[in-house]
Amino acid sequence: MMNDTMETAVGGLSRILAVRLKPGTDVLLGLEEACKANGINNGVIISAIGSLKDPHFCNPVEMDNKAGYGYGETLHLTGPLELTSAAGIICHDEEGNTNLHVHMTVTDRHGNAHGGHLVEGTKVLLTVDVIIGEISGLVMGRKFYDDLGYALFAPRQA
């Protein structure tokens, strides 16, 4: 369903994939590899916890573009951090290329929380344990929206 305020599609969970990323693995690339190896390009990250070394992430900022916003420069924290939570969607573009959109929250040794949009370069410290649900009955797509100037999530019925 699509109207002026939202786009929706209904489906269900068909499989669950459990993934443990090992030390030194790039989190985003490792998750993408796990999804591709298991044929998942319609899914959701149900849970992700672990520890990270020097995470990289970004957050929205005001920009001079059609939308008025976009992701700002990559932020980089140093040292070991606890990955207290990560969530995201596994979708694909119009050519079928797998695309992950993951947000995370980390805490430092003092309990201070930081978070944002996960980007490449974030490495596993000891482990990152992830549960991924494959979704059936709908298409977790991405498409380019001319009015905003961005490729965004575009769910539709299968």
Rank of each mutant, 00 (worst) to 15 (best):
N59T: 15
R156F: 05
L83G: 01
V124E: 01
G115Q: 10
H101N: 01
D64R: 10
V61Y: 01
H76Q: 13
H117Q: 11
A113G: 04
F153K: 04
G72A: 05
G116I: 11
R109G: 00
V128Q: 05
M1C: 09
G39V: 06
K123S: 02
V139D: 15
V119W: 07
L100C: 03
L29N: 13
V61M: 07
G133Y: 06
M6S: 15
L148S: 12
E33I: 04
G96H: 07
L100A: 06
L118P: 02
L81W: 06
V128H: 08
R20S: 05
A9Y: 01
K36F: 06
M2G: 03
A113V: 01
Q157P: 01
I40W: 03
M140H: 02
D26K: 13
G133F: 13
F57S: 07
A113S: 12
P80W: 04
E134C: 07
R156I: 04
D54S: 15
R15A: 12
S51R: 15
G11V: 09
K22G: 00
G50C: 06
L138C: 10
T25Q: 13
G70V: 02
L77V: 05
S51N: 12
L31A: 07
I16T: 11
T84H: 05
V106I: 01
T127H: 08
I49L: 08
P155F: 11
H92K: 09
H56R: 14
H92N: 00
M63Q: 15
S47V: 05
S14A: 06
T74W: 05
T25R: 12
K53R: 14
I89N: 05
R15N: 12
H110Y: 12
L13S: 08
I89H: 01
F153S: 07
I45F: 11
T74Q: 10
T122Q: 03
E120Q: 11
A151C: 08
A18S: 14
G30D: 10
G50P: 02
G72H: 06
G115S: 14
E82G: 00
T74I: 15
G72Q: 10
D64C: 06
H117G: 05
H92C: 00
R15W: 09
G43A: 06
G121L: 13
D64K: 13
T105K: 04
G50T: 03
E82H: 04
L29Q: 14
A87C: 03
K143I: 01
L75F: 03
I135E: 04
Y69G: 00
N99V: 07
M63V: 03
I16Q: 08
M6W: 08
